[in-house]
Amino acid sequence: MSINLKRRVLLKGSLAASTLGVAAGAGLLAPQAVLAAWNTDAFKAKTEADAMTAMFGATEAEASGAIDVSAPEIAENGAVVPIKVETSLKAESISIVAPNNPSPMVSSFALGEGAQSFASTRIKMGKTGDVIAVVKADGKLYSARKSVKVTIGGCGG
């Protein structure tokens, strides 16, 4: 009798635990409050123009002196190239494009309320070329570029 009772308790306990597990799992799978969905077309695009069209619906971005792109002049290791983008424009998004990469659209930061117009990360570069920062502000596109000389490419094997 007492053994049976314990069995009940144990079963009940494990059932409760598994329900909790399912709930936690569902919570993780629930869509997060994202500001921008991952743009498959833009990131899969093979040319700068296609990537720009998929991301912004336009290929032209006005060159702007208000955008500051920091990148090394010579990157000894193309697998890790630090990039920093800063602008006095009120940016809605900052995207980093490497036209010579197999997939030029490298990353894009969607900046919501409370975010400063700043983004920095480390990217891979297959070969020497420009890094373009595309800033969307007031519904318009602005860009600035910096040339990076890559000694050892970071895309191929």
């Binding site: 990469n101 997939s103 659209m105 490298v106 930061f109 990217i123």
Partner: peptide, 17 residues
């Protein structure tokens, strides 16, 4: 902020904002 990344971002990504 939502940062969208691709395989073009370095291994063990570092993000600063």
């Amino acid at each position: 902020i939502t940062a969208s990344l691709s395989g073009g971002v370095s291994k063990n990504p570092y993000l600063n904002c």
